[in-house]
Design a protein around this nucleic acid. Structure first.
Lengths: 260, 260
DNA sequence: CGGAGGGTTGAGGTTCATCAAAGTCAGTGG
DNA sequence: CCACTGACTTTGATGAACCTCAACCCTCCG
């Protein structure tokens, strides 16, 4: 289904734009006029308080679509900044709206995408509000891994992690120092391995158990994506409430060459 | 604009339903079939970990619409529970979708509502991730006050607060004990006053400053609501990027009798 | 080679959690 | 009217998780 999005965006190759690490894709207070599809690299959505404290609200990975909020024509209350070199495809709000009006499935796809993002935000609230430092880190790593796998279809246990301890700290409501210590502990416990911008999760089961990571999280979502096809806006919503936990993530979508 | 929502929902009086404190409006794992409009009382969206830790993700106040996510046909990953006696109007997904298809402005109104909710979620992340206990409490109180004012049009500085210390703690990532202590401190500092389920904010300016509460938060949003009218889905989006900080909240919408 | 950015480690401090006891308050029943 | 109950709040004492400050390290890069 994301492929619908991809192909639509691809008609608009000319609107490709790339950014260097640290560049702002969206600045606070600005009234953005585009919807973005991130095709390469990572970006963060963040907010900085007057005294300098920064909170990263969520991460945007390759394949992610934002800012659908632009449709409501509001000033951005949070900035979006590139973590590494990133490439986006952008589409004008008006063109975008026309696209939606022409295609029900497409509208569903985007609605689904917005719902998905909200789910990630809620999970982030739980993570920061009610988990220990160690759980937060483990949980975030697993979520990122899962999202990357869903996006690019890879099933590897090693993934790129272009984040500094400070980035992680600002995402998790901790200090860089404490993140460092805690990750050392995870390393010593044989749960992860690190090196030059990459992490390998050595024992995902154990890490998930210790972090209270729900292995179904973001899973049945993907799933419904498959079956729900046309989805709600299109008018035909699936009526059975069945769940399908035997779903295999690797079939989600045709992989598309990309890197971080 | 919310009035559009109100009047549409009102055609469906028969779908009124009320709940007692503690009743679940939506249970985790369930696949809800309705969109809700909360007309009386408060509700919380929350998630509980296996070991009992609970996180309240956000509060639903009179006038709020949820669960638009139902349109994506996903199992609920978080429960929704009544805090007090609440009354909702519910509308079937299919009817709802038909409504949206018939009316562009209505679709915009709902989109706006979803965007608004996401904004509140992001603010919650910042609050829990990067603020001290005292800031969290002050900030939340101000947000609730603002939302209540926007919803019912009142400008009073005293508001209902049907939450226990435990509820507040679970929303803010603290313990009830610490919430109690911190609220005592706020009381002693002459910032607030409490009594039988109500809070009075004595010095909003000072509390806002101390909590780093952005007085514009949820403000210009309301604003665009007024002017944006048709909004994006309807095809005509306002083109000027002007901001209107001189907006007076009391004119937001025709007040509608209600209580908590 | 020197400097910048990031990571790690240690010592000591603060905020918040935990545990436990007592206090308030509304409701209930004798 | 009073005793009793149950749900909630407050307060105190103690401890753990996490922060702060600062030194030192490494790696990369001009």
């Amino acid at each position: 289904m994301d492929d619908i999005i991809w192909s639509e965006f691809e008609k608009l190759q000319n609107h490709k734009k790339s950014y260097e690490a640290g560049d702002d894709l969206i600045r606070v207070g600005q009234n953005p006029k585009h919807v973005f599809l991130l095709t390469e690299g990572w970006a963060i959505r963040h907010r900085t308080l007057e005294d300098g404290r920064r909170q990263i609200v969520n991460f945007m990975l390759p394949g992610d679509v934002f800012d659908l909020q632009v449709l409501a024509n509001l000033e951005a209350d949070h900035g979006v900044t590139a973590v590494n070199r990133t490439v986006t495809m952008r589409i004008e709000v008006d063109d975008f709206v026309n696209m939606l009006k022409k295609s029900g499935p497409l509208a569903s796809a985007f609605w689904w995408s917005a719902v998905q993002e909200e789910s990630i935000l809620r999970e982030q609230i739980v993570r920061v509000g009610r988990r220990s430092a160690r759980e937060r880190i483990g949980h975030l790593l697993l979520e990122l891994q899962r999202r990357l796998q869903a996006a690019i279809g890879s099933q590897e246990d090693v993934m790129p992690l272009p984040l500094t301890r400070t980035d992680l700290a600002d995402a998790l409501g901790l200090t860089p120092v404490h993140v460092s210590r805690t990750m050392s502990a995870l390393r010593r416990a044989g749960l992860i391995e690190e090196g030059r911008g990459r992490v390998k999760i050595l024992d995902a089961e154990k890490l998930a158990r210790q972090s209270h990571f729900d292995m179904d999280y973001l899973h049945m979502r993907r799933l419904d994506l498959l079956n729900g096809g046309g989805g709600a806006v299109n008018g035909h919503v699936r009526q059975d409430g069945s769940s399908h936990k035997d779903f295999s993530a690797s079939t989600i979508r045709p992989p598309r060459p990309r890197n971080s």
